[in-house]
Structure formats: structure tokens, C-alpha cells
Write a protein that binds this DNA or RNA. Structure first.
Lengths: 137, 137
DNA sequence: CTTATCTGTAATGTTTACCATTACAGTATG
DNA sequence: CATACTGTAATGGTAAACATTACAGATAAG
């Protein structure tokens, strides 16, 4: 799995703590320790799904206009990483009963795992994440 | 996630269908479509955890001596891939409340996800996998 | 209306993880 | 002792992830 999922969580949490003003990709990237372009890429995904708003130009940036409890980690996972659990497998041997069918069996299992994981991730909204971050302070 | 997990499942399933004789890494690798050395590496892990036995020399190979229902996918996951869910994150900014604490929050969440996933994976033993493979035939 | 400050995104390097491959030592069998 | 295996270290190739550069487009401020 790449880190788009965790970067998205990081960004939304950052924005959640700045509810009244725009934050720039520079500010977020400095908090997360990655390049601002990467933040803009991830946030452009979140924007496409209406989780944040952005504004170009001087004084612009990103803002999270929703209730913190309206977005949960499964929402974010689906956008950034759905299907990422299953490793890429090479073509296996169709002449072998295992090679011919394992691919399909594994696909359905990974699909089930992801769905099951979703139930867990739904329990965490950005509100919970913010609380956890504050609690550690 | 790399494919050690799926290769281990593939190999055990292959061995489960050859309960009475040794299978070579060559035979398994041909079924899985990967290099025999890779199979030997994965199987050496499984051997270390007593899930299979191996024998060197002429007529040697690998064998799965347990009941098919004695090994489940969570057992295999723990050996091959525990901790693989969480992506590697760069050092984030300690001066920012989010940067300073997000790492820890994410760690505990990924830990929870993996544990939750474990409950699901435990439902699948090699016996189930073999049945699923046969059913597709 | 021009300059500075942002986002948006394509293009290009760089690094790293993954995997294949080679090589060879060790072990069992006939 | 020749052959057929495992076990594992070392090396090389490739693709994914990520950083970086570059620049067009938008907006605000002077």
C-alpha cells in the first residue's frame, strides 16, 4: 500500500484543526514531512469526492467544511487505496488445478477481507482521529 | 504487501493435494508461476514454524504433514506479512501537534485493523481453501 | 494591470521494494 | 561418487513510490 491513505488522514486532521481559515499545501506538507505536490495530489482526490474545498491564488488553500464526524476512514480508504490489499500475482499455471483456480479464490478472499476491514474503519471518523491526536498531547 | 502470503497459501494448497509424497520447489514454482528459489524461501519460513517438513537430496522436497484444518490464513499471515498493512511514513514534524502525534495514532489504528482482519482470516483454513479450489474445477 | 501567491497537473529523476537469477555449499539416495 | 534435491547468500533487473521541476491557470493586493 502506498501512503496516500495515511497522507489523506493526516491532511484532513490538519485541516480539522484549522476550521476557520485556508491552509496551504506547503503548511500541510511541512507537518507531514512530504513534498507539497504530493499533498496537492492527494487533496485533489479528496476534493473530487467533495470532502474538502480549495481555492487558488493569494490567500487560497484548502479547507474542510464538513462536520468532523461526517467523514470516516473507510470513506478515505475507498478513495485512496481500494484493492490495494491484494498483491500482484504472476500468471499461474492453468494446467494445474491449484494454479488454475487459486487466483480466483484469493481474489474473493481479499475482497472479503477488505469489506470486513471496512466495518472496522467506519468506526473511526475524523472527529475520533482529532480526539486521539489531542489526547496524546 | 509482497506476495509471500499468497505464495505460502498457494504452496500449502498444492502440498495438501499431494499428501502422500514429497513435492519439489520446482513443481510448486511451476504451478505458481514464480522462481523456485522464491518458493524455497517462503517454504523455509513455513518450515521454521513447523507447518511443513522438508527433505534434502534425491527424492526430497516438501510435505504438509498436518490436518488441513490445523492451519488457517491468519497463521500464515502472521508469519509472512505481519505489520505489512501500515505504509512506511516519513518523519513528520514534531513541532506540529498533528505531525507529532499522527504517527502514533495511525500505528494503533493499523494494529487494530490487522487484529480485526485476523478474526476474518482465522475462518479460512487450508481445508476451506482446498474446497474452494476444487469447487471451481 | 501587474506582481505575488496560491492550486492543478504533467513530466522527469531518484530511490526503494520486489522479484528473478546465479552461484554454490550442504545433504540424501542409489 | 554422481545425481537430485534443499538452503541461502549475492547480484542484477524492473516497477512502484516518491521527490522534484516546471509551468499554466486562478485570485487577491498593491
Amino acid at each position: 500500500m502506498n501512503s496516500d491513505f495515511t497522507l489523506a488522514i493526516h491532511s484532513l486532521t490538519f485541516l480539522a484543526l484549522q476550521p476557520d481559515r485556508m491552509s496551504t499545501s506547503d503548511a500541510i506538507s511541512e507537518s507531514a514531512g512530504v513534498h507539497p505536490v504530493r499533498i496537492r495530489k492527494v487533496l485533489s482526490l479528496l476534493k473530487k469526492h467533495k470532502f474538502i474545498k480549495s481555492k487558488e491564488g493569494t490567500g487560497g488553500g484548502f479547507i474542510f467544511p464538513l462536520e468532523l464526524s461526517e467523514v470516516n476512514l473507510w470513506d478515505i480508504y475507498k478513495i485512496t487505496s481500494e484493492g490495494a490489499l491484494k498483491p500482484k500475482c504472476p500468471e499461474s499455471n492453468e494446467k494445474c488445478i491449484v494454479g488454475a483456480n487459486m487466483q480466483g479464490v484469493l481474489c474473493s478472499i481479499f475482497f472479503g477481507v477488505e469489506k470486513h476491514m471496512g466495518e472496522y474503519l467506519k468506526e473511526y471518523t475524523i472527529k475520533e482521529i482529532v480526539n486521539l491526536v489531542n489526547k496524546r498531547q
